[in-house]
Simulated assay, not measured.
Amino acid sequence: MTKAAVRAHTNIALIKYWGKADETLFLPMNSSLSLTLDGLYTDTFVEISDTFTEDQFYLNDVLQSPEETAKISRFLDLFRNKAGITDFVQVKSVNHVPTAAGLASSASAFAALAGAMNHATGLNMDLETLSTYARRGSGSATRSLFGGFVEWQKGTSSEDSMAVPVDDASWDIGMVIIAVNKSAKKISSRVGMKQTVETSPFYPAWVASAEEDLLAIKDAIKARDFEKVGQITEHSAMKMHGSMLGAETPIIYFEPDSIKAIHAVRA
């Protein structure tokens, strides 16, 4: 019997990840960059034992359905196969993030689970290598293994599509979140991405410009130019939402209060 507990923090992308080049391996269409947040996180505890007769998954103290557990089991298999073990696992995860509400709860969740399994199996992979495993649960989880500004390099394969730290964000910068709706999104990110990639005529331009934005924001971060970081972030986000509006059927994640907030910030 082995146990491990890990806390991972969510991250919010400044240069967005939206769309997969490989649906199975979760390889992204473009590289991305995020800021990891100290106030939103997931605590995950895992126990591996040869006495268990099946995998169990508890989220916020509620035993999850066989369908939800099956998704987690497939992720656990990545670590079991690597470690050469077949024992079942009990997973207990507590989200200190509104789940599926657009605040990257899956990023912190799968980063925490990846970290816990890394310890419990004794694999002890370095964080960059571990990020290639976390990615298979949720693309954004790749970045949640690190603090500060983090780049997810799209790579060319499962082995090199990984996260790398960019800047520890120890300067005067942070993030304010306005929760206009804490409910789960009506269209999941996974579905929304696929729909946008397959049907939006604006999508190729989004991918091309994302690479330019990434280079520009890294220069701005290096210069600690808050204004420039903000401008590039806003432009990236609006272009991403623009590509969704061009999808068939259009995808609208904005709430009425989202628009009010945008105008308030600009004012």
Rank of each mutant, 00 (worst) to 15 (best):
V265I: 15
G230D: 10
G242Q: 08
N181I: 04
K16A: 06
T121E: 08
G155D: 02
Q56P: 11
K20V: 06
A223D: 15
N81E: 11
S236P: 10
S170I: 01
T196A: 00
A70R: 12
N95K: 08
S93Q: 13
D22L: 04
F57A: 02
L245S: 10
I48K: 07
A21D: 11
S188H: 11
F45H: 15
S34L: 04
V207D: 07
A134L: 05
P256H: 00
T121P: 08
A220K: 01
A205Q: 15
P165M: 02
A8V: 01
A220G: 00
D160N: 07
G39P: 00
F45E: 15
H263K: 15
N60C: 01
R266K: 13
A5V: 13
A264Q: 15
T233M: 11
K185V: 03
S157V: 06
S32K: 12
A120D: 10
L14W: 10
Y253K: 00
I15N: 01
Y203P: 03
M193F: 07
T53F: 13
A8I: 05
E212A: 09
L59A: 12
T249W: 14
K16H: 07
S106D: 07
N30I: 04
G84N: 02
E159D: 08
I12K: 03
R7A: 01
G139Y: 03
Y133S: 12
E198V: 10
I252C: 13
Q64Y: 07
D87Y: 12
V207R: 05
E47D: 10
